[in-house]
Each structure stands twice: as structure tokens, then as C-alpha cells.
Design a protein around this nucleic acid. Sequence first.
DNA 1: GTCTATACTAGGATAGAC
DNA 2: GTCTATCCTAGTATAGAC
Lengths: 183, 183
Amino acid sequence: MSNQKAEIVDVIANLFRRRGYDGVSLGDISAATGLGKSSLYHHFPGGKEEMASTVVEQAASNMQAFVFTPLMAGDSLESRIDGMISSVTGIYGGGDDPCLLASLLSSDENGPLAERAGELIRLWADRIANALRAEGIERKEARRRGILAVALIQGGLITSKAFDSGEPFKEAMATARTVLLAR
Amino acid sequence: MSNQKAEIVDVIANLFRRRGYDGVSLGDISAATGLGKSSLYHHFPGGKEEMASTVVEQAASNMQAFVFTPLMAGDSLESRIDGMISSVTGIYGGGDDPCLLASLLSSDENGPLAERAGELIRLWADRIANALRAEGIERKEARRRGILAVALIQGGLITSKAFDSGEPFKEAMATARTVLLAR
DNA sequence: GTCTATACTAGGATAGAC
DNA sequence: GTCTATCCTAGTATAGAC
């Protein structure tokens, strides 16, 4: 994907994650990108749905680079978990920005977008579980904690939005850290 | 509110919580309720927005009855927390049904609906904190735990949706219970 | 690769009969 | 209190010039 197109996709992603799939119109996208509707169809012949699926795939690629990779990089479990938490905190603006995957999972009920978003959330939990298993934590317990960590991240984002403050998200992240590093 | 109207509101609530505000059309509501569009305007002169706000106020009333009341009713903190968890598990179909408040908080960005939904989520965390304070837990710690419990509930719902299973939600509720009952 | 212009449909809302 | 019919706007999408 060209650099310019990646920028366009990024702008569109920020619309979808804040307002959901149905809450964003082509007019919104046109205004935010500065491109006319027809130009958008040049880049995304499949229309709005292709815009959204492209956005999700870029998110998948970002997760790989900024979340999954740190989870395997550090030289201790603690540094791996902290690496993920640091990346995640950045991605979500310290709790101020909603999660694209959660947004699409909820707004596109039963559609292919929701299915793909769900798949990535499951993959996320799985990657965390793998990091724990590599430290000798038993399979089922690792899986349980991975899912719990993702739940804390997502719940932290929702409560942060409700409180209009990054504090709940940060507390949730601290709790996730404790859960993941517990002996 | 008449019984019949409460039933209509209930049907509409189930649409909004699954698809968000923008994902539901008047046609959808007409089909789900069996009422023509004009009949809907007879019940809700303010249109779609009034339908949604009515739905939210019914949710507020349900929370009072089924969530906040149990939180003050039991004869021990443990029974109060268990009462809330039991109610919440019922409301969300064991993790299968999304939260209306979270749905509207996310889809109606900065609108009055999102503001009211956020207010109710904050109130929820506050009510939990009050229950803890009544047991002698220090103010700030009680507040922290209340918010964390709400985050676990909301995050549990999202992960349950992603996994298409009630299991993540139930694990999140068990964790919330542990957090709230910790000495 | 972007634009103007234009279909066409769906969505929200109203009028007025019964 | 519900219906049919209608209006109007916004939304998705396409055609075709530059």
C-alpha cells in the first residue's frame, strides 16, 4: 500500500472507530480526506464496505507490528507485557480513543466486518496466552488470562469514554498487568 | 408508562443495543414492533431520537430496580455483590446480549444520548463504590474498584461477542467478584 | 487521479383518512 | 391509535469530462 493511500486509510479509520460503520457517511469521509466521492471510488471500487475492510486489514497489520511483535520481543515476560501495554496505551491515546475493532464488532452485526474484527480480538487474546505459556503457565490458565487482559483493555476504553478521562483505562491496564504477571 | 408501551420500548431497546443508534432504521423498528411508521410517531412524536431516549430512560429505571437495589439489599457485602452479578448476568443473557448503554455511548458520539449513557455508567460505578464504602473500604479505593468492575463487565461483553460464547463474560464477572470482595 | 453532475435508493418525517 | 400515501433529505453509487 502506498504511503499516500495509507494516510487516507488512517483518516477513514479514525472516523469508523469514533462513530462506527453506520455512523459514518461517504460525505463524512469525503470531507475528512479532502477527496471527492468519485475519487474515493477510484481508490475503493467496492465502496464503503471496501473502505472499512481495508481499514480493518491495516489495523490487523498494525496489531502485528505494534502489539504482537513486542509480545515476543522482550527478554522477560515482564518486559514483553510492558511492551504490549506501552504500545496499546499509545494506540488508544491513553484511553481517549476508541478501539476500531470493538467499534466494528458492535456496529456491523453479523456482517463480514464484525466477523473479521472478532477474529482479530480472539487472535490478540491468543497471542497474549502464548506469551504466558512460553513462561510455563498452564494452557487453560494462560488462555483465561489472555482473554481477561483483552476484556480489561476494552472495558477500560469504555469506562474511560464514560468518564471522559484516561484514568479508568490506565487503572484497567495496571490491573491487566497484575493479572498477566501473577505467579 | 403503560404496559403495552413498555413492551414496544423493550423491542426497540433490543434493536438499539444490538446494532447501535445509526444501525437501526425506522423501517427496522416498524418491522420489529409490527407498527407502521406513523403509529410510531404517535407514540414518539420526537421521532427516532425520542425512541432512543425513552429506551435509555427505561434502562435507567431497570438499572435502579435490578442492579442498584440489590447492591443495597443483602445483609453482607458478599450477598450484595452476588445479587448484582446475578442480575447483571440475567440482563445480558449470560454474556450473549450487548449492553445498550455501551452501544449508545459509542454510536452517538457527543450527542445527548451518549452523554446520558455515560452518566448512567458513571452512576453504576458510583453505586458499587458506595456499597464498598459502607463496608469500610476507603473512598478512593472503593471508587477505583467500582470503575474496574464496570470495565470488567463491559469488557467481558465485548470479548464474549468476539468469541461468540458466554464464557469470557462469566470469567470477567468472576474476576470482578474477586476484586470487589478482596480484603 | 480528481472533478462535476447525476442517478437512484433508503431513511426520517408528515398529512390526513379511518 | 393505526393505516396509506407522500414528501424531502441524505446516502450510496455511477458516468463521463479533464
